[in-house]
Simulated scan of single mutants.
Amino acid sequence: MSINTIKDKVVVIAGGAKNLGGLIAEDFAKQGAKAIVVHYNSSSTQASAEVTVAKIEALGTKAIAIQADLTSAEANKRLFEDTIKAFGHPDIAINTVGKVLKKAIVEVSEDEYDQMSAVNAKAAFFFLKEAGKNLNENGKVCTIVTSLLGAFTPFYAAYAGMKAPVEHFTRAAAKEFGERGISVTAIGPGPMDTPFFYSEEGADAIAYHKTAAALSAFSKTGLTEIEDIVPYIRFVVTEGWWMTGQTILVNGGYTTK
């Protein structure tokens, strides 16, 4: 079995119920994954997770849905334990979990700060920890961050600021896990055409973002589409394994570092 392929591999996808995570799950099933664990956060996304599992199974890949609030270390541990019980040790771990907040620093409450930290940084850290402990040799890990890490902009301190630590988590994990052949990357999409984007943006901001990328005119919405991101995820967990410890901004020329 080739080490740089999705075929016959066990995959765990945090936030795999819908949107980008759901599309990754379907794509990996089409690539011949042996089994896929579709993680979802709460009862509000359970139905979507079950639909995604059904789509995966229809493509001939085994699948289960697992609920967990990954803002606790214990929940991340259980997610990987349950994955191993169902299918054996995973080969690929993808974390798409995130929460957006657009608000001025002077308006962010302590509760909002804590929530953004828990979802965007703490969950990512402990997902990486469990991936490092439980992935098979030559495994692959990828975390979804944001292209705002390359932007100089107001109002996203609590969001981009809490995604920023994942860059260093990624570098450190790449060094620490590399002796087992495990590569670790982060992908930062531009503003994506998903409900998470529209829920935080006003009409003027939406209009701006739809024209801000160099390639906006060639996108069906002007934004980053989830279909634009999946090939990069597929690449970094297969032929692109030699690129490790990196954060790659994929945004059609929206911003760069």
Rank of each mutant, 00 (worst) to 15 (best):
S43N: 09
S44P: 01
T45A: 03
T45S: 11
T45V: 03
T45K: 01
Q46F: 00
Q46T: 00
Q46G: 03
Q46N: 03
Q46D: 01
A47K: 13
S48C: 07
S48H: 10
E50I: 00
V51T: 13
V51I: 13
T52G: 02
T52N: 02
V53H: 03
K55T: 08
I56S: 03
E57N: 10
A58M: 05
A58V: 07
A58S: 13
L59Q: 08
L59I: 06
L59Y: 10
G60N: 11
T61W: 10
K62R: 05
A65I: 00
Q67S: 01
Q67K: 08
D69H: 02
D69P: 01
D69G: 01
D69E: 08
D69K: 01
L70E: 08
L70V: 04
T71V: 12
T71A: 06
S72F: 11
S72Y: 12
A73D: 15
A73M: 15
A73R: 15
E74S: 14
E74P: 06
E74A: 15
A75S: 13
A75I: 05
A75K: 09
N76V: 04
N76T: 05
K77C: 12
K77N: 13
K77F: 11
R78V: 04
R78K: 14
F80E: 06
E81V: 06
E81M: 09
D82E: 15
D82R: 15
K85S: 15
K85D: 13
K85F: 06
G88K: 05
G88I: 07
G88N: 01
G88Q: 03
G88E: 03
H89L: 12
H89V: 11
P90H: 07
D91M: 02
I92H: 06
I92C: 04
A93G: 09
N95H: 11
N95C: 15
N95Y: 11
T96G: 10
T96E: 11
V97Y: 07
V97G: 08
V97R: 12
